[in-house]
Nucleic acid binder design. Structure first.
Length: 677
DNA sequence: AGACACAGGTTTTTT
DNA sequence: ACCTGTGTCT
């Protein structure tokens, strides 16, 4: 195993295989190299690949590590004595839990065809619960209740920290109902995936023992982002053998608002008093000017593990700070600068990114980019799987696999209209709650349908017949079309249900209808490829497919291949880097966000600013406006107080004349000439 | 059932 | 300004 390409701290981190280890990996310090190097080193020292577990938060990170490990480890090392392939487990928290639950979930009283609810489906459950529960005078926001439910389920404290204690109390009271509702639908949400594994370990010592014996060397990436349940999960696995290595950066903890507990990293000694701490401080990404600014900002946070980033890249360019009149002028100027970089400095589009705190800031930027005819990629935004037709289609899939899935059933029962309107479905839902069974359970029980008109009963029974016959065809042992069994099966019921007909009927113009149809057809073509061994029965293949799209909604914005400018929020830029970074709207009220002052989370906002700064490799440009349109109103703006934390000598102000070298000037004129010819 | 109007609320997001 | 969810009317 080649270690000479690593710096001394990295090498030390790679070699420290046994016992608890905390690797404090500042931004851009080669964290992924260390984790993958560590995996490769362990294997080279004779540790069986199957005993290694590396957990990440995102599929992207997991894939990246898998690829790197593959290139670092000789193939023969990934084969055990009996010639079987043996790989290290490198996956997300959630897919690890799914693997475990796939084997054991029946022990927890779920059927093995359970479905995974995404955020929208969770929200549906909460809405239904809230509509039944009467609370005081005001109507609670389902989204807020859902986040509080999630926070409460994943916390270890007796108090739910929230500004709105009344709402927090409601959320606490609704947790049981919420969990029961999901369970009776034979559905789990993302929190359940972790929590059910914890329960499995508590209830079923053999399962815990099995996992402990398998995963003898554990690594956790982005450890500052773990919540309490995730900590319990890995701690539960690791506390026997104590080969527990966590990698993270407390300064980049920016997900506290969704339950991440940076205390897991800060207080690691509580659980492992003898933990070794290795700091990675040499940064391979940015110039020292950028790093000095980042260091100067972050040192204003208390409650952190001291770190100081440095690099051998020299000072580079000073940081540019611009002030503009409003967000439209800001957008125009930034776009002009990007265009200038491109045409004069030969900087490619993809080497430039504009970062912002809130999504709504992207609007004027997009307008300006389109006007200049510059292609861009807006990261985030509406996912493919959030489109209505895709949601409907996937709901049908989930329902056919698991007819107890109330959320799916309620979504598609009347799509297309088949006489099962709101009133009927509400009555059925109420009945199901009375009897403690699923809605489908009520529908198929003819005796329970006394209160409905004969015509409604007929509609209900037709629907039951549909679900049962499609379900039966799914379970039929010999598929019609062995090469593409899922697609063939779907084509059958799509025709029968008439979903395409319905979409063509509902849509105003033919083009958007065909668009929606095409989206589903595209999905059909992705269903059979092999993330599941081809010899498995069709229902299992469907189950795996649904699992796959729930856990890995592969970003269809994979336009990274193209040469385009990136527009991205500060949150989603963590882990990325760009040669030229522009941070727009560095204003009081945006960074730090106005709400953070009320909520007392200004430190997290400072970390957010720190993350933004440390994305830049060569140049960093920041801007703020004198006023900005917010909620339709023009609001005066002050520069961010964080700007004062950056030493003045690192900054030049945008209105100062920009020094241009003679060479650049010659180049400029020759290009200008060329463009005129 | 579907079209339209009105109220209310707008930080960040992965699995 | 703008989007979403809900209520009312045909």
């Amino acid at each position: 195993m080649e270690l000479t390409s690593l710096n001394p701290e990295q090498r030390q981190a790679v070699r420290t295989v046994d016992g608890p280890l905390l690797i404090l990996a500042g931004a851009g310090t080669g964290k992924t190299r260390v984790i993958t190097g560590r995996v490769a080193y362990m294997i080279s020292r004779g540790i069986r690949p199957g005993n290694i577990l590396a957990v990440t938060f995102t599929n992207k990170a997991a894939r990246e590590m898998q690829d790197r490990v593959k290139s670092l480890v000789p193939k023969r090392r990934l084969i055990d004595e009996s010639g079987q392939a043996e790989r290290p487990t490198i996956c997300t928290f959630h897919s690890l839990c799914v693997r475990i639950l796939r084997r054991h979930i029946t022990k927890l009283g779920y059927k093995k065809n359970f479905v995974i609810y995404d955020a929208a489906e969770q929200l549906g459950v909460v809405r239904r619960i809230l509509s039944q529960v009467s609370i005081g005078s005001r109507k609670p926001d389902p989204q807020a209740v859902l986040s509080l439910i999630s926070r409460w389920r994943n916390t270890n404290s007796d108090e739910l920290v929230a500004e709105d204690q009344e709402l927090a109390g409601l959320a606490k009271r609704l947790v049981t109902t919420y969990q029961q509702t999901l369970k009776s639908s034979n559905a789990v949400d993302f929190d359940d995936l972790i929590l059910l594994v914890l329960r499995l370990f508590a209830d079923c010592p053999e399962a815990l023992k099995e996992c402990r014996e398998r995963y003898r060397y554990i690594m956790v990436d982005e450890y500052q982002d773990t919540n309490h349940s995730q900590f319990q999960l890995v701690h539960g696995l690791a506390k026997a053998h104590r080969n527990f290595c966590v990698v993270g950066d407390d300064d980049q903890s920016i997900y506290g608002w969704r339950g991440a507990e940076v205390a897991n990293l800060l207080d690691l000694e509580k659980h492992f008093p003898d933990v070794q701490v290795i700091r990675l401080e040499q940064n391979y990404r940015s110039t020292n000017t950028i790093l000095e600014a980042a260091n100067a900002v972050i040192k204003n946070n208390t409650q952190r593990r001291e770190k100081k980033l440095w690099s051998d890249k020299g000072d580079g360019e000073p940081i540019t700070l611009w002030e503009f009149r409003d967000e439209e002028e800001e957008a125009r100027a930034l776009v002009e600068e990007i265009q200038f970089n491109r045409s004069i400095k030969k900087v490619r589009w993809r080497e430039q990114a504009i970062l912002f705190r809130t999504n709504q800031q992207s609007r004027p930027l997009e307008t300006a980019l389109r006007k200049a005819e510059i292609r861009y990629n807006l990261v985030g935004g509406q996912s493919f799987f959030d489109r209505r037709e895709i949601r409907d289609f996937v709901s049908y899939l989930k329902l056919f696999l698991n007819p107890d899935d109330d959320t799916g059933l309620l979504r598609v029962a009347n799509v297309p209209a088949r006489g099962l309107g709101n009133t009927t479905m509400e009555k059925l839902l109420a009945l199901s709650q009375e009897r403690g069974c699923s809605v489908f359970g009520v529908m198929r029980d003819e005796a329970a349908l006394g209160q409905f008109k004969p015509r409604t009963v007929e509609s209900i029974l037709d629907f039951v017949e549909l679900v049962e016959s499609v379900n039966e065809r799914l379970n039929r042992p010999v598929p019609v079309h062995p090469a593409a069994p899922l697609k063939a099966w779907c084509t059958g019921w799509l025709e029968e249900v008439g979903l395409f007909r319905e979409m063509r009927r509902m849509e105003k113009d033919a083009e958007s209808a065909e668009n929606r149809v095409r989206n589903i057809v595209d999905l059909l073509d992705s269903m059979d490829p092999d993330f599941c061994p081809a010899d498995r029965p069709v229902p299992e293949r469907l189950h795996r497919y649904l699992e796959h799209i729930s856990l890995d909604r592969e970003r269809d914005d994979d336009e990274e291949a193209g040469d385009v400018v990136t527009l991205i929020t500060v949150h989603s830029c963590k882990g990325l880097e760009f040669p030229h970074v522009f941070i727009a709207g560095v204003e009081d009220g945006l960074i730090p966000h106005a709400r953070s002052k009320v909520e007392g989370t200004v430190d997290e906002e400072r970390r957010l600013f720190y993350v933004a700064i440390t994305r830049a490799q060569r140049t960093l440009t920041m801007s703020h406006c004198g006023s900005r349109r917010k909620f339709g109103e023009l609001i005066p703006c002050q520069p961010s107080p964080f700007l004062k934390e950056i030493p003045e000598e690192l900054i030049v102000h945008g209105d100062d004349a920009e020094p241009v070298s003679e060479e650049e000037e010659r180049d400029f004129f020759s290009r200008l000439k060329a463009s005129l010819e």
